[in-house]
């Protein structure tokens, strides 16, 4: 089910990007570092992340759009883990699955038309983060799944490539606020992608 939802969003994103007039859209590969309460639960850099991004130019220096990303954090631990009124010992997997769907606003400058030049941007995303936090041991799972409100400032650039596409290099700081019984989550991401202008 989750895969179907993700694939559906991907297809919709592709379709939107393909039909967008006077805009830019593409994919990114994300490398993320969990910090804050996310980093306390699962440490280590995540190399499992990807995203779909599209934006439409709304003036000489501004654009609006959307992003969808999928980031996976996981860590294998051994030892004893303290729980309320007890302890659990064994191999454990700490995992966090994060899927932000954000509306974005950008200020951009430079020139990256027709596969040439470089365009720089700063932006802010706001929207919803679907986050699943799992502690797995043996056949047992403690799991919380929530929608969080979140913000994501970012900076980056598009650089024209020779074959008509654009290299996208961006740095984001994802922050999802606490929701229900799930903690807040934070992780900066380095996003490397390819994009096309229409």
């Amino acid at each position: 089910m989750r895969t179907a939802i993700v694939a559906g969003i991907l297809v919709l994103g592709l379709a939107a990007a393909a039909r967008a007039g006077n805009g830019i859209g593409g994919f990114t590969y994300d490398i993320s570092v969990p910090v804050g309460e996310t980093g306390e639960f699962t440490r280590g850099t995540s190399f499992r992340g990807l995203g779909v991004e599209a934006r439409w130019f709304r003036g000489e220096h501004t654009a609006v759009g959307f992003t969808w990303h999928w980031n996976v954090f996981h860590e294998q631990l051994d030892g004893t883990w303290q729980v309320k009124n007890g302890d659990v010992t064994g191999h454990q997997f700490h995992r966090v699955y994060s899927s932000p769907v954000l509306l974005t606003y950008y200020y951009q400058w430079g020139d990256a038309r027709y596969g040439k030049g470089t365009m720089y941007y700063v932006g802010l995303g706001a929207g919803a983060y679907w986050i699943e936090k799992r502690l797995e041991f043996g056949t047992g799972v403690y799991q919380t799944t929530n929608w969080h409100i979140g913000l994501c400032p970012e900076v980056g650039l598009y650089h024209g490539l020779s074959f008509g596409a654009y290299l996208n290099l961006g740095v984001k700081y994802n922050h999802a606020f606490k929701s229900g019984d799930n903690t807040s989550h934070s992780y900066p991401s380095l996003c490397l992608g390819i994009a096309w202008v229409r």
Binding site: G90, H91, G140
Partner: peptide
């Protein structure tokens, strides 16, 4: 899952 051996599934829980 990363669980490769029977021992990997051993979990001791006390409350």
């Amino acid at each position: 899952s990363g669980f490769n051996t029977v021992r990997d599934y051993d979990v001791v829980a006390t409350f």
